[in-house]
Amino acid sequence: MMIVLSLLALTLLGASLGGALGWASKTLKVEGDPRVDEIEAMLPGGQCGQCGEPGCRQAAEKMVSGSLSPNCCPPGGKGLAASVAELLGISLNDDGEQVTMIAVIDESNCSGCTRCFKACPFDAIVGASKQMHTVISQVCTGCNLCAKACPQGCLTMQPQAVQPHTWNWPKPQVA
């Protein structure tokens, strides 16, 4: 009698727990890592592909899985790298001075084909058909998409000039 009762109890227990787990695995299922969404929201979203990924979503996935470093995104720069590293709880070695590149149009050679203007995901280029185009340097993230689109070869990426208010003291060189 005792054996029958305990067998029954254990079977019931097993069946109910298994059922609960099965239900939970379906209804409480997590689609991917929530950190991917958080990181994707931080990225500039230009889908420029400079990190080597097809888009920002894929870059965020790779960053979470650890196969891509947080400082892989040139448009995001140091600020983005620091916030991503903080979110993922990893340390960054950002001693290397990062130079911000921005697009510069040689306006005298611009034919006004509007290709760069159409390629810019940030609306950082102004211009119209058969008119000279120019880059709004404060908005340009240096994503390089326009340089690929320019048939004239008059659009180049150049390091952003240091301004007195953006210049920074170097780290003291001491023994």
Partner: peptide
């Protein structure tokens, strides 16, 4: 040096947030 770096980070963050707004608007 440290302050300059923090400022640069802050302005990069602002710029990148602005860029995101711009792509969404676009």
């Amino acid at each position: 040096h440290a302050r300059g770096n923090l400022n640069a980070q802050r302005s990069m963050r602002q710029k990148s947030a602005h860029a995101r707004e711009l792509t969404q608007a676009r």
